[in-house]
Amino acid sequence: MPLTRRLTLLAFAAALAGCATSTAKLSTATVGDYRDTIDLSGKLSVNYQKDGRQESITGNFNWEQRPGAIDVALISPLGQTVATINVTPNSATLVQGGQAPRTADDIDSLTQQALGWPLPVSGLRDWLQGYALDAQGQRFRASPANNSVTTRDGWRLRFVEWQDPAAPQPAPRLIQAERAASGDITDLAIRIVVLPAA
């Protein structure tokens, strides 16, 4: 795969670790330690099949979430910022080096236009804090004793490791998300590592 295409895919894949459909459309937890303001960084890897070929992408991300806005920096394995994403209640904007900004009403539309394969963008704001909406639309709070759920939109989540397993409500360190098929993409697996705060 050409390097430029790999970096483009990396950028969008990294968005998995820090995007949302639109802050106006995101669920808001009213229980536990859910926070509207967070700063996270981490690593992720994405594996999937498309057109009979196995594809793999790795990268890093920085994620800043404030009430009404999410900002994501997408970083190559060599440490270069390859894209930034800003999500507000009204729009999502993606900027890649040397290209004009791309804007859409929501980040789902924007990434679908660019990639043509699904990103679990609408749930990740919750997932990164150990929450999800289950298949019945009920609030799920992950814990070491209750660490897996199938989401409303068909993702199978497993919260594998924790920042501090002994905490009353531990924050996730390793999240694995899988989806069997979506369009021409099959066997999509995402591994997200949330790094501890500095």
Rank of each mutant, 00 (worst) to 15 (best):
T8A: 12
I185C: 15
Q113R: 10
A92Q: 06
L195V: 05
G98F: 03
L16M: 12
V121Y: 02
I57Q: 04
S27D: 11
G79W: 02
D71P: 01
G52Y: 00
S56V: 02
I190S: 08
I192E: 03
R5F: 07
A24F: 00
L10I: 09
V193K: 06
I85C: 06
V82L: 03
G59K: 04
T58P: 00
A11K: 00
A83G: 15
L119M: 11
S56E: 08
V87G: 05
I85H: 00
A142G: 06
A180P: 02
A145V: 05
S182R: 10
S45G: 07
F140L: 08
D71M: 06
L133S: 05
T93E: 12
W63V: 01
P172Y: 00
A17L: 06
D164S: 09
T58A: 07
L157T: 11
G18V: 03
A142Q: 05
E55A: 04
V31R: 09
S148Y: 00
L40V: 08
R102V: 12
A69F: 00
Q49A: 07
Q80T: 13
R35D: 06
V121T: 13
I190G: 10
D71W: 00
E64S: 07
I175R: 04
G98D: 09
T111Q: 06
D71K: 09
V193T: 15
A24T: 05
D126C: 08
D39V: 06
P120S: 03
Q49N: 13
D33F: 02
A29P: 13
A135D: 12
Q54R: 09
A17W: 01
I190N: 05
D36E: 14
L16Y: 05
R35V: 03
A171H: 00
Q169R: 08
A20M: 10
A142S: 09
T21S: 09
Y34E: 08
T111Y: 03
A171Q: 10
S182D: 15
A114D: 11
Y48W: 04
L124T: 15
N62G: 09
V72L: 13
R156D: 15
D51R: 08
P144Q: 03
Q99V: 01
I85V: 10
R173N: 05
S56M: 03
D33Q: 14
T58C: 04
T58V: 14
Q65T: 05
T84V: 06
A145C: 04
L115V: 10
I70R: 10
I57E: 02
Q54G: 04
E161S: 07
R5A: 15
G18K: 13
G52P: 01
V121I: 11
A15K: 00
T150W: 06
V193M: 13
T81C: 11
N47I: 01
S45H: 01
D184P: 01
D36P: 08
V72R: 04
F159P: 01
R141D: 05
N60W: 11
I192V: 15
M1P: 03
Q99D: 07
Q136W: 02
W162C: 02
Q169W: 00
V31H: 06
F12C: 15
F140M: 10
G42C: 03
K43H: 12
V149E: 10
E178F: 00
Q99S: 09
E178A: 13
D153S: 08
Q176G: 02
